[in-house]
Amino acid sequence: MSFREKSAWISLFCLVIFTALWLTHALRIEFFGAENDNPMLWFFGTLAALIALEIGLHVTIAIQSPREAKTPKDERERLIDMKASRVAFYVLMIGAFVSIGTLHVPGANRYTMAQCLMGSILFALLIRFATQIALHRRDA
């Protein structure tokens, strides 16, 4: 498995954890309220922890294969990145329109729209990394 594929797996893994935590938190607030809770502190705290985990895992794989880690992305890897970003862009656009659409849902408010938008961003990123992995594996 190439360094770039490992990197994509790590990013996907960290993002899946973050998405699961965020979704659990968002649903808990939605259905049970948020008494004595600071959503912003929770959000940025969790995000910082996941970023630290991702950096740590990337450092680990870079130590295992330092030559590959130092090598800049070649044309095929850049193409894979672009293809994955294009797929993720469409997912994000659909998510953005759905988020705008929540304003017309009875009972929904700005918080609902913000959560929907956040979900769209996370889902688009998940699709991006998953597509990168699929393209790396297909061309391997």
């Binding site: 190439s2 770039r4 590959e68 090598t71 070649d74 044309e75 095929r76 890897e77 790396h136 297909r138 061309d139 391997a140």
Partner: peptide, 22 residues
């Protein structure tokens, strides 16, 4: 040629067409 081993493998197997430069 300044690419990864995986890219050479993909070119060799005909799964990826390289740029003219490569």
């Amino acid at each position: 040629i300044g690419v990864t081993r995986q890219t050479v493998n993909a070119i060799e197997l005909g799964k990826y067409s390289p740029s003219l430069e490569v």
